[in-house]
């Protein structure tokens, strides 16, 4: 079964690779991946769907949460969430089936974004399985080309973000001074005021 993971991460070079590295290092193939900035342009929201063995699902999400650039990784698979995808379909259809194509497009609540003598370009959004059906239907009208966005997910639960508060950096090492090189493991203060969900 496909697992959907939603990740809030810092918009920094290499951050994407760190996340996908958790999966590739374990030999998993990513089915879909979308990423774009959030309301805060320094942060990105990523949705990944991947087929992970049941036993390792929690482990994968935990490993992602460990990444320094990741603020929060959560498994949307078994929790209340909306998952949507967009597809662009170019269908080359004969003149006599144009009306039927338009009708089908309407049934799927899709939009015609280009029309030419050769056929249409259609934009559809919805549940990924629904889009599979849409593509199947369009295929019956002629040669098609498809570009899918991959799943975009959003949890319907309120998830509190637990962020690390700032800590004091190394200070000049005078007597009694603290240097981060002598900070005992986990010495930084933990816990912080809840931050609104982004």
């Amino acid at each position: 079964m496909l697992q959907t993971i939603s990740i809030l991460l810092e918009n920094k070079p290499g951050a994407l690779l760190r996340v996908t590295g958790v999966l590739s290092a374990r030999g998993y193939n990513i089915e879909t991946l979308t990423v774009a900035k959030t309301l805060d342009p320094e942060l990105s929201r990523m949705t990944i769907t991947v087929d992970v063995e049941d036993r390792l699902r929690t482990q994968v999400v935990k490993q992602m949460n460990k990444l320094v650039n990741v603020l929060q990784a959560s498994d949307l698979t078994d929790s209340p969430a909306v998952i949507r995808e967009m597809v662009l379909v170019r269908v080359r259809c004969p003149q006599d089936s144009r009306t039927s194509v338009l009708k089908e497009a309407e049934i799927f609540h899709s939009r015609i974004v280009d029309s030419s003598v050769e056929g249409f370009a259609i934009e559809a959004t919805g549940d990924p399985e629904k889009l599979d059906e849409f593509i199947e239907v369009m295929r019956t009208y002629g040669e098609i080309e498809v570009s899918r966005s991959g799943s975009v997910g959003m949890s319907l639960e309120t998830r509190k973000l637990r962020l690390q508060p700032p800590v004091q950096a190394a200070v000049p090492s005078g007597p009694g001074a603290v240097s981060s090189s002598t900070i005992p493991s986990g010495a930084a203060p933990s816990g912080s005021a809840p931050v609104p969900v982004i």
């Binding site: 810092e10 320094v68 650039n69 603020l71 700032p166």
Partner: peptide, 16 residues
């Protein structure tokens, strides 16, 4: 400029 604070919001420390 000396650095006085380190802020890594995604770096989660569990200590207690």
């Amino acid at each position: 400029t000396p650095v006085d604070t380190i802020h890594l919001p995604g770096y989660k420390l569990f200590t207690e």
